[in-house]
Simulated assay, not measured.
Amino acid sequence: MGLHREFEAQGQWLFRWRSVLPFLFTPLIVLAVADMHWPFGSARLHTIWEYACLTVSLLGLAIRVFVAGCVPAGTSGRNTKGQCAASLNTTGLYSLTRHPLYLGNYLIGLGAMMTPSVWWLPVIYSISFVAYYERIMFAEEAFLRKQFGVRFSTWAEVTPAFLPNFARWNAPSLGFSVRSAMRREYTALFVIIASHSALEIAGHAVVEHRYVLEAKWAFLLLAGAACYFTLRGLKKYSRLLNVSGR
C-alpha cells in the first residue's frame, strides 16, 4: 500500500474514533493537576487565568456554533461511521479555512489543557492534535476530491487547511439559524462547562486541600446542565429545533 492510500486508511480509522482522543489525555491531565499551583502563588491571578482559559474554549465553541448555524443539511455532521457530504461548503468560515470545525475542537481542548498552568500539557496536546487530525483531514479531503473533483481542488488551492486566512472572507451562502446551531452544539457547550468546573474543583483540592466549587462555577454548571437536558429533550421529542434544509 502506498503512502497516499495508507494515510487515507489511517485517517478513516481515526475519523471513526476521533471522539476518543480527549479520553487518551486523562492520565496526563491527572499528572498536570497533581502539579497544579496558583500562578506566582496568587489566587487572584489564578481566577484571571481560569477565565482566560475558559475564553479560549468558548472561542472554539463560537467557531463550531457559527459553522453549525450556517451549513446546509448533510454536511459538517457528527457522523462516525464514514465520510458524507451532500454539498461542498466553501463560504462562511469555510472560506477562511478548510477545516473550521477542527480548529474549533482544537481551541476547545486547548483552553482545558491550559487550565492547570503547566507548560508541557498544552504543548503535548498541540503536537498530538496535529498528529491525530492530520490523517483525518487527509482522509476527508481525499473523499471530497473524489466527490466534487475540480470544484474541490480549486477551493483547496486557495484556502488554508487549518490556520484561517481572514483576507479570504466570503459571507456564508445561508443565513445563521439559531435553532440549527442549538440542535448541533448543545453537547459541546455542556462539555466545556463541565470540564472546566471539574478542573476548578481539582485545582482547589490540590492547592488548598479542600473540595469547593465557587458560586459562579456552580451557577454555570447548573445553567449548562439545564440547557443540555432541555435542548436534548427538544431534539429527541419534538421538531422545534428542526429547520428545513439544515
Rank of each mutant, 00 (worst) to 15 (best):
S244I: 06
P72E: 02
F148P: 02
S238L: 12
E140Y: 06
T55V: 12
M1H: 13
A198N: 13
G149D: 10
A194K: 08
G11R: 01
I192D: 14
E6V: 09
S87F: 11
F138G: 00
A139S: 15
A62L: 12
Y186Q: 03
A225H: 08
M182R: 09
M113E: 00
I193F: 10
N89D: 13
A188D: 00
R232A: 01
P164D: 00
T75V: 12
A112M: 06
R78I: 00
L107D: 03
A52F: 08
H99C: 03
I136V: 05
H37S: 11
S42F: 07
L61S: 07
G41N: 14
A215K: 02
T159F: 09
N89R: 08
V67C: 07
E6G: 07
A73W: 05
F190Y: 10
T154W: 09
L54V: 09
L88I: 12
R64F: 02
F15S: 12
T55G: 12
S244H: 13
E185T: 06
L189M: 14
V212P: 10
S42V: 11
F229L: 00
H196L: 15
L93C: 15
L24P: 07
H209V: 08
H37D: 15
E8P: 03
V130L: 12
W13T: 13
S87W: 11
T75Q: 04
G92M: 02
M1L: 11
H37M: 10
G92R: 03
R5S: 15
H196K: 11
S244M: 06
W155H: 15
V178H: 06
Y228G: 07
T47I: 10
F166S: 05
I48M: 09
Y132P: 03
L61W: 10
T55L: 12
A215V: 03
S57F: 12
L45W: 07
A68P: 14
L61V: 01
L110K: 11
L28I: 03
F176L: 10
A194C: 09
R151T: 14
I124H: 02
I201N: 14
Y211Q: 03
R5H: 13
S95T: 00
A161E: 08
Y211E: 09
Y132K: 01
V71I: 04
L222K: 06
T115Y: 14
A32I: 12
T47Q: 15
G77W: 08
W155Q: 09
Y186G: 04
D35Y: 11
A9T: 11
V191A: 11
P22H: 00
L231D: 05
G104F: 05
L163A: 00
L213Q: 05
P122R: 00
G74V: 09
R78F: 05
G104S: 06
L213P: 04
P27V: 02
I48H: 05
R168K: 07
R18M: 01
H99P: 04
